Computed example of a mutant assay.
Amino acid sequence: MTTVDLHRLTGAYALDALPDEESAAFERHLAGCGSCAQETAELRATAARLGLAVTTAPSPRLREQVLHRVTTVRQETPGTPAEALTVRLGRRTRLLSRWALTACLATAVTLGGAALWQHRQAEDARARADRAARATDDIAAVLAAPDARTRAAGLPDGATGTVVVSRSRDRAVFVVSGMADPPGGRVYQLWFADGGTVRPAGLMDPGRSDQAVLLRGAVDGASGMGITVEPAGGSEQPTSALLALMDLPA
Score class of each variant (00 low, 15 high):
Asp220Asn: 14
Phe174Leu: 15
Leu52Val: 07
Val165Thr: 05
Ala17Ser: 13
Pro78Met: 01
Arg216Cys: 06
Leu9Lys: 04
Leu190Ala: 04
Arg199Val: 09
Gly51Asp: 09
Cys104Lys: 11
Ala25Trp: 03
Val176Pro: 01
His29Asn: 09
Ala108Asn: 11
Asp20Trp: 00
Asp210Met: 05
Arg208Ile: 06
Leu214Arg: 01
Ala250Tyr: 01
Leu50Glu: 14
Val198Lys: 03
Ala212Tyr: 08
Arg91Pro: 00
Arg186Lys: 15
Met225Cys: 15
Arg171Met: 07
Asp5Arg: 15
Asp170Val: 01
Trp99Cys: 08
Thr3Lys: 12
Leu143Phe: 10
Thr197Pro: 02
Thr107Ile: 03
Ser177Thr: 13
Pro231Phe: 10
Glu230Ser: 15
Ala159Ser: 07
Glu39Ile: 00
Pro182Glu: 04
Arg199Phe: 08
Glu123Ile: 05
Val73Thr: 14
Gln121Ser: 15
Arg199Ile: 07
Glu123Met: 14
Ala115Glu: 06
Asp124Met: 04
Ala159Asp: 08
Val70Tyr: 09
Gly224Val: 03
Trp191Tyr: 00
Ala25Cys: 11
Asp194Ile: 14
Met246Thr: 06
Thr86Ile: 09
Ala125Arg: 02
Asp157His: 13
Glu76Leu: 14
Glu76Trp: 07
Asp210Trp: 05
Gln65Glu: 14
Ala180Gly: 02
Asp137Arg: 10
Thr40Arg: 08
Leu155Val: 01
Gln75Val: 12
Phe192Arg: 03
Leu111Arg: 05
Leu116Gly: 10
Leu30Asn: 02
Leu95Cys: 08
Ser177Pro: 01
Ala48Pro: 08
Ser166Arg: 07
His7Leu: 13
Arg208Glu: 15
Gly196Ile: 10
Leu214Cys: 05
Asp220Val: 02
Pro183Tyr: 09
Gly234Pro: 00
Gln211Glu: 12
Ala37Arg: 12
Leu62Asn: 02
Gly51Gln: 09
Asp20Cys: 00
Arg63His: 11
Pro78Tyr: 00
Arg92His: 11
Arg199Glu: 01
Pro60Arg: 11
Leu6Thr: 02
Val73Ala: 10
Val175Phe: 06
Ala172Gln: 00
Met204Thr: 13
Gly184Ile: 09
Pro58His: 09
Thr107Pro: 01
Leu243His: 03
Ala132Gly: 14
Ala45Gly: 10
Thr2Phe: 10
Ala125Ile: 05
Phe192Gln: 03
Ala144Phe: 07
Gln121Glu: 14
Ile227Met: 12
Gly11Gln: 09
Ala144Met: 08
Ala25His: 06
Tyr188Pro: 00
Glu123Pro: 00
Arg61Lys: 11
Arg126Gly: 12
Val73Tyr: 10
Trp191Ala: 05
Thr46Asp: 11
Ala152Lys: 12
Leu89Phe: 07
Cys33Trp: 05
Ser23Tyr: 05
Arg126Val: 11
Glu21Ser: 07
Leu85Gly: 09
Gly195Tyr: 11
Val187Glu: 03
Ala114Cys: 08
